[in-house]
C-alpha cells in the first residue's frame, strides 16, 4: 500500500427520511479542522434515495466535495447496500481519513467497511488531531469503561477510520450559498444482490423528550436505594418539566429502562441543567454528562467523585433535600403566576 495515494478527509453523511443527522454536521466541523491543518479538501459521502437536495447543506457546513449515491436501493439503511457504496467510493477516490458518527448506523457501516478494506477503525472517539506532515490521525477515546483515555494510531493502512461520539465535536456555523463540487456515482446494484429486506419501520413516540435532546435532566443513581426510591426522581423531573436520566447501577438494578442511561455505555447528554442525585460519579457516568451547562449534585457521601465534576454540590440525604426542592420550586412558580410574571 502506497500511503501517498490516499488524500483528503471524508465524513459519512448519515441521513434518515431526508434529514441529515446532527452528528454528521458536527463531524464536518471537526473534519474541516483536520483538512485545513493537513492542507487537503474535506469531502462528504452521502447515500440515500432522492437525497441530492441535501448537497447544499453539506457544503454550507464546510465540505468542499460531496460524493453522492442516490438510488431507490438505498431507501432504507442496510449494511449490505451502503457498505458496497462506501467501499466503491474508497477504492476509487482513496481518502486518507474517514470519519463516521458513532451511531448505530455509523458503527455498523464502519465496522463492515473496515473489514473489507482491511484497515484500522477506532470506536467512539472523543478527540481528533492530525499530524500535518505525515497525515497520521490521532484518535483518542475513553477505554476500559472510561477508566483511561487512549490515543489510537493506524500507521500502515489507509484510510484511517474512526467513529466519533455525537455531541462531542462542534458543527460550524453554516454559510448559506457556500459552494462545493458534487460528484454523482452509480453502482450496478440490484435488489437481488441484497440478502436483507426492511419489512417495516416502527417509530415509538415517547411522551417525554428524548434525553439527548432535553434541556433539563434529573438523573438518579444507586443512592435512591430502590425502585420506589427512584420515584423521587420522576416526581422532581415532572415538576421541572425535565427528562429522567440514570446511572448504570440504577439501570442494572432494573429501576428504569436502559434508554435513560447516561454515560459511556448509555447516552451522552449536554443539557443546560443536569441534576445528579444519589450518583457517585463513576468515570463511566461522567464521560456522558460532564459537558452539561450547570451540574448540581446531591449525595450523602462527601467524598463522592461527582462533587469533583459538579458546579454546585450538596452533601445530604436526597429524600430530605429533593422534597424541599419540589416544594420550593412549586411555590416559586405560583408566586410568579400571582404577580403576572411568566416563569
Amino acid at each position: 500500500m502506497n500511503l501517498e495515494d490516499y488524500k483528503g478527509v471524508w465524513v459519512f453523511i448519515e441521513q434518515k427520511d431526508g434529514k441529515i443527522a446532527r452528528v454528521s454536521l458536527e463531524l464536518l466541523g471537526a473534519g474541516r479542522k483536520l483538512a485545513d491543518k493537513r492542507g487537503v479538501p474535506l469531502a462528504g459521502v452521502l447515500i440515500g434515495d432522492r437525497v441530492k437536495h441535501l448537497a447544499q447543506e453539506v457544503f454550507a457546513y464546510g465540505a468542499d466535495l460531496l460524493y453522492l449515491y442516490d438510488d431507490p436501493i438505498f431507501h432504507h439503511y442496510r449494511t449490505e447496500s451502503y457498505m458496497r457504496a462506501v467501499i466503491d467510493c474508497c477504492r476509487k477516490y482513496k481518502p486518507e481519513i474517514f470519519l463516521y458518527g458513532a451511531t448505530s448506523t455509523g458503527k455498523d457501516l464502519a465496522s463492515a467497511v473496515a473489514t473489507d478494506l482491511a484497515t484500522g477503525l477506532t470506536a467512539d472517539t472523543t478527540m481528533l488531531d492530525v499530524d500535518a506532515e505525515t497525515g497520521l490521525l490521532e484518535a483518542s477515546r475513553p477505554a476500559f469503561g472510561g477508566n483511561i483515555m487512549a490515543t489510537i494510531l493506524c500507521k500502515k493502512d489507509r484510510p484511517q477510520m474512526a467513529t466519533v461520539r455525537p455531541k462531542v465535536m462542534k458543527a460550524l456555523e453554516p454559510v448559506p450559498g457556500r459552494s462545493g463540487q458534487l460528484i454523482e456515482e452509480h453502482l450496478p446494484l440490484g435488489e437481488e444482490d441484497i440478502r436483507t429486506k426492511v419489512l417495516e419501520i416502527v417509530r415509538e413516540t415517547q411522551k417525554k423528550v428524548r434525553i439527548d435532546e432535553a434541556d433539563i435532566i434529573v438523573a438518579g443513581g444507586k443512592g435512591l436505594g430502590s425502585k420506589e426510591g427512584f420515584q423521587l426522581i420522576h416526581q422532581f423531573a415532572d415538576v421541572l418539566g425535565a427528562s429522567v436520566g440514570a446511572s448504570r447501577d440504577a439501570v442494572e438494578a432494573g429501576w428504569i429502562e436502559h434508554h435513560h442511561q447516561v454515560g459511556q455505555t448509555g447516552v451522552t447528554v449536554t443539557p443546560k441543567i443536569y441534576f445528579a442525585i444519589g450518583i457517585s460519579g463513576a468515570i463511566q457516568h461522567l464521560v456522558g454528562m460532564q459537558n452539561s451547562g450547570l451540574i448540581i449534585a446531591i449525595n450523602k457521601d462527601p467524598n463522592a467523585a461527582i462533587f469533583q465534576a459538579c458546579h454546585y454540590g450538596i452533601v445530604g440525604d436526597a429524600f430530605e433535600i429533593v422534597p424541599l426542592l419540589i416544594e420550593g420550586f412549586q411555590a416559586a412558580l405560583a408566586r410568579e403566576v400571582q404577580y403576572g410574571g411568566k416563569v
Binding site: 490515543t151 494510531l153 464521560v287 424541599l324
Partner: peptide, 27 residues
C-alpha cells in the same frame, strides 16, 4: 492495523462549590 500510542488518566474536573447551611437554605 491499530496501535495504542498513549494512555493517560481522564482529566479530573476541578470540583464545584459545596453549598452549606441547613437543607432548607441549600434548597
Amino acid at each position: 492495523p491499530t496501535i495504542v500510542s498513549k494512555v493517560w488518566p481522564p482529566e479530573k474536573p476541578k470540583g464545584g462549590e459545596m453549598l452549606t447551611g441547613t437543607p432548607k437554605e441549600q434548597a
